[in-house]
Design a protein around this nucleic acid. Structure first.
Lengths: 336, 336
DNA sequence: TTGAAAGCGCTAACAG
DNA sequence: CTGTTAGCGCTTTCAA
């Protein structure tokens, strides 16, 4: 038969083709004994020919059958989100959970997303990457049984995976001190609206602690706030290096920023580390290509562990909230 | 008055009680950022009060299709997939399609994935990144009405977005020639199973063409096949540089490989470009940080365009298969 | 940004 | 028994 329908057939198609009405078709589907055998057979024949499947059922079946885990992430501005995503995808790849990505472009609509996700997202689980949310958002997620994990952020409602950023800053400070630096600069995203998550600030504070203990007060002009993007970072780097007495070492709160800084230094004819030491933070794979000394925070692992934890929480519903701190490790290479 | 609904509330109830319309309520549920914060909060408050939960079958009935778009991608081994994903996420972020990620770890189970996606994926559309598939896979996708787009690959069944890799190789060859190089090497993933997609080989061939025209025959030992991963690339780089008469320039078929190569060169005390010229391919953002000269293939755009094309094909079903070639551009920096 | 109104595919009440 | 028709609860143009 070359009557192959090109659209998904509906009961209207079946009705037309079987010369009956949609009501009759509906009946053979739902109350088959209210229909004469002839009619029923005629209709069924067409149903088979058309490969008709009631749409709602198909949908319900699909939904019921597949389990879904969502990830709410800032739009991939920084490679760190990608690394985390990689870990999540890796962990979920071994299961048959579906992975849904929601990218948020502005911190202002996190709540909007979360509400929508909770109410009509149909998710079993959700991982929130580095994004702050309100108490209402949390409550709604819980009420709608969306098991949630938070990464790079610790709060009371959900389990989380993150690091000790202050300790990270301390590692940085200690190392720079050890290497003989007394005039250390800082570049990082520390100057944002209050409600955002700012690990960079904690890292700076960690470094400050250590310096203070050594009797060193980091000068204000050595501290530059800059969003992660290359242009802002470049400007911050230039400000630091334009100083009459520039720092001898700069700690960048993110590896990408350290990389931009290295580029700026190179363009200025500065040798790294002789003229300027550069210390990064993150442990991106790219850092190795540039021989960047950095503090590794196991980004891929953070995603993997968050996903794994979510998975166990999904099966073992008794599991209670837990907060995981990932270890930090200095990776010595050639820029400090 | 206590309007406490005892029945299952509907969006009509929510609309009435929040003094908005059902359309607006629907929007806060599905397209949250098309609604002002005030309106959204007002509506959400009522939703919470009423304990409103949207009925899945009603929703299924009302939406045409499933509002789901999938992306089948190799597990993020190479940053190029991430860039493409970024473009896709960007384009989809403006719609209210859901973005489902399927990561394939081995080329051997592409077919399995595709079959499952076609049969029970419940997708409206699918974007296949850099992964080869069979005729059967294609047929099944078409039969199940999954509108499919292919990236980095051109074939007869579906629309595609890719580049002219031979032309890319020619650009590389011309440029190196122009810069005075006669002994050029190559590193890239050219030696894989037949059924895989190998743009790197085409790039090599493009370079070969140009060289041949200039009367230069690239020596066999100057051509190193290496998978994208750092270790393999490092080995290939070392082989090239260990040669009694090493090439004066190396074209790497991927920026990440070029970066590894630069690192290897630096470790050997080679100056780039004086002792060794390095030319990449891709146009990653990182390439800039390393001042890498490369050929930009607009990876982000490839994803964005694929998604946009898919979207129009989804609405305008009359649109026929089309194959888009993205432009290539040499980005001169400091490594050649 | 918002609301009115026209569907979506299907069920069920009502005539015939 | 069968067909007509009015919904079901939600989504999505289209104007305003």
């Amino acid at each position: 038969m070359s009557f192959q329908q090109n659209k998904n057939p509906t009961i209207y198609d079946v009705a037309k083709r079987s010369r009956s009405s949609i009501a009759t078709v509906s009946r053979v589907l739902n109350s088959p004994n209210q229909v004469t055998r002839e009619t029923r057979e005629r209709v069924l024949k067409v149903i088979d020919e058309l490969g008709f499947v009631p749409k709602a059922e198909a949908r319900a079946r699909a939904i019921r059958g597949t389990r879904r885990i969502g990830v709410l992430t800032p739009f991939f501005t920084s490679p760190s989100f990608v690394e985390r995503l990689k870990g999540i995808a890796y962990a979920l790849g071994k299961t048959n959970y579906e992975l849904i990505i929601y990218t948020v472009h502005s911190i202002n609509n996190v709540s909007a997303f979360l509400a929508s996700i909770a109410l009509s997202g149909g998710l079993d689980g959700l991982i929130i990457l580095s994004l702050p949310f309100t108490e209402d958002d949390a409550r709604r997620l819980m009420e709608h049984k969306v098991v949630t994990m938070v990464v790079e952020y610790e709060q009371e409602y959900f389990s989380s995976v993150d690091i000790d950023n202050i300790a990270g800053g301390e590692i940085a400070g200690k190392y720079l001190l050890e290497k003989g630096h007394r005039q250390v600069g800082f570049i990082g995203e520390i100057n944002p609206p209050d409600y955002a998550i700012r690990p960079a600030l904690a890292r700076l504070n960690g470094m400050r602690n250590v310096m203070a203990k050594a009797g060193i007060d980091i000068r204000d002009e050595y501290i530059q706030s800059a969003p992660i993007d290359p242009e802002s970072t470049r400007q911050a780097a230039n400000k630091l290096l334009d100083l009459p007495e520039p720092p001898t070492a700069i700690f960048a709160a993110a590896d990408v920023q350290a990389m931009v800084l290295m580029k700026v230094a190179a363009d200025r004819g500065l040798r790294v580390p002789q003229d300027l030491a550069v210390l990064g933070f993150d442990g991106l794979e790219y850092a190795e290509f540039m021989s960047l000394t950095t503090i590794n925070q196991s980004l891929v692992d953070s995603g993997r562990i968050a996903a794994e934890l979510l998975l166990t929480q999904l099966t073992d519903t008794s599991r209670s909230v837990q907060h995981i701190k990932l270890p930090l490790a200095l990776v010595e290479r050639e820029t400090v």
